[in-house]
Write a protein that binds this DNA or RNA. Sequence first.
DNA 1: CGGGTCAAGAGAACTATTCGCATGTCACCT
DNA 2: AGGTGACATGCGAATAGTTCTCTTGACCCG
Lengths: 146, 146
Amino acid sequence: MESSPWEARLREQGFRITAQRQLVLESVNQLGHGTPEEILSSVQKTASGVNLSTIYRTLEVLESVGLITHTHIGHGAPVYHSQDESPHIHLVCDDCAEVTSIPAASAAQFSLDLKETYGFTAHMTHMAVTGSCKTCASKSELKSNG
Amino acid sequence: MESSPWEARLREQGFRITAQRQLVLESVNQLGHGTPEEILSSVQKTASGVNLSTIYRTLEVLESVGLITHTHIGHGAPVYHSQDESPHIHLVCDDCAEVTSIPAASAAQFSLDLKETYGFTAHMTHMAVTGSCKTCASKSELKSNG
DNA sequence: CGGGTCAAGAGAACTATTCGCATGTCACCT
DNA sequence: AGGTGACATGCGAATAGTTCTCTTGACCCG
């Protein structure tokens, strides 16, 4: 019997294949963006006994073998997504909290500058960029003009 | 009697002048970068009775009147700094956690791109940029080559 | 300089995450 | 297939960071 790519990934690194790991991975893939809590809820639809600790531990494992990545979008809750998606930067509105994903390539020049000037290899996808979205920016303009 | 600029700032917005607010502001100015806990310690050198709740409330007030700003540097505690300092972006090394400050102007072109392409007004100083610093980047190169 | 109202102190509560330990289970080895 | 040892999970307690509630204290307008 042949094994799925994700199973092979885990096995290569000496990790075991468990139902929990499969379910968490499937939930992350399906959710697109998901916090640990959201992933727990999703997993519990199938297996209600799964514990939050397991979610955290499993996310860590899946990330360490490169199946998923996470991004910090605000204060607390990190967001996990499938490594299959093309790398993207998150723009988060401080005001309405809307999240826009843009191609990581948008920051190519900025990254290059950081590399050349400071020798710093930036991971632009790991931390969101905060600011004001189109809608909220025009709202606050109206306010200051009115 | 004339009042300091920071007192005026608070009063303008209807806030009272208190010893705690003065001490917190002075600590932030003095520390350069400080987490709420660090600011508490610093304040307590002068006034040992000050409570952590007060630190949080005061930081919020001082930020709302524009005397200080904060930046999210990673998972843990946010970092506060004086608004007097010139605006800067924080580069944080994932590996050694070293923080480098660079002028906000370094991201001017990137910000402009975000504005023009997505209508998004980025606040580059509010969230740190993570990645690998010069030292750690060369270390991991050595590892993969050796 | 009295009093209304905002601020501070104290500690509980809350959110997000991690840890320790006992039990369960995967996978290797016969 | 069955035994076994190490790894994984469940569970609750612990931790970190922050916010809330409530009572007491203090600023500052008049």
